[in-house]
């Protein structure tokens, strides 16, 4: 695709031009099947970027490419360039493990390790070769995920004994503990009740002071509440009947929800489909 035809890239209009992740003409394939087509998307530092769109539009697939989790799926292949601070993440010389330590992932379903709350948080730091004061790091990470006050008296208890919302915040604490620069969140609130969701959303406002966050969400209100930038993806069927996802529009969240440039975006955010 010719760069002059790239869909509304907002990076030109951004005040903060400190771009952490550049996505240049990225297509993602599973075998011969193209799941995501020609995405251009720049993620500015200390922003929350929301990826929204109907099911099957490839937003989770794209998210997983940012820390090379798609490597685990046999046959998955990325074309184009994903650059993290100027470094091509899919360069053969790049160690995916190192990528994931800088770009951590929080999953849709809270998935604490079957270990104590303390060990859940300490695990990430340990594998990262953390040498400092572990107690202090655990406390700081749990405070960072707004969980400290609820668990400070039971750090030895299993992480699985917590409620769903607490588990998800534990997973966020675990990710903070590896001290990444970017946190990826794949529908982190979809299994949470509204109160827990609100807490995680408040948390994101805090976290973005320190981290850059990319979040996939089905919840448009959530995107409008937490995101600085929003990317709307849509899915289209090919002649063969298979569907591929593509980026329709990427802009400041306010613009996406109030003054979208594309009709499809307008239809989606106003609830006409999806």
């Amino acid at each position: 695709m010719n760069p002059s035809t790239r869909p509304n890239s907002a990076s030109d209009t951004l005040e903060n031009n400190d771009i952490v992740i550049r996505t240049e003409n990225v297509s993602i394939f599973y075998g011969a099947f193209q799941a995501v087509r020609n995405v251009f998307l720049d993620v500015p530092k200390n922003n929350v970027v929301a990826l929204i769109g109907p099911s099957g539009c490839g937003k989770s697939t794209l998210l997983r490419c940012y820390n090379r989790l798609n490597d685990l799926i046999p046959g998955a292949r990325v074309e184009g360039k994903i650059a993290y601070q100027g470094v091509d993440l899919y360069d053969p010389k790049i160690d995916p493990v190192e990528v994931r330590r800088r770009i951590g992932m929080v999953f849709q379903k809270a998935n604490p390790f079957p270990k104590s709350i303390y060990e859940n948080v300490a695990f990430g730091a340990r594998i990262n070769g953390f040498k400092g004061n572990m107690d202090e790091l655990v406390e700081r990470s749990l405070r960072g995920s707004a969980l400290w006050d609820e668990v400070k008296d039971k750090l030895k208890e299993s992480g699985l004994s917590l409620s769903g919302g607490q588990q998800q915040r534990l997973c966020i604490a675990r990710t903070i503990a590896i001290e990444p620069e970017v946190i990826l969140m794949d529908e982190p609130c979809s299994a949470l009740d509204p109160i827990s969701t609100l807490r995680v959303e408040d948390l994101m406002h805090e976290l973005k002071k320190q981290f850059t966050i990319i979040i996939v969400t089905h919840n448009m209100q959530q995107a409008s509440r937490v995101a600085d930038m929003t990317a709307f993806f849509n899915a289209e069927a090919t002649e063969g009947g298979s569907r591929f996802g593509y980026l329709v529009e990427y802009d400041k969240t306010y613009n996406i929800f109030n003054a979208p440039k594309q009709q499809a975006t307008q239809d989606y955010v106003s609830g006409r489909f999806g």
Partner: peptide, 13 residues
């Protein structure tokens, strides 16, 4: 599977 993904997702070898 989620537990494995969790470990991989934060950079465990």
């Amino acid at each position: 599977r989620d537990t494995r993904l969790a470990a991989t997702g934060i950079g465990a070898t």
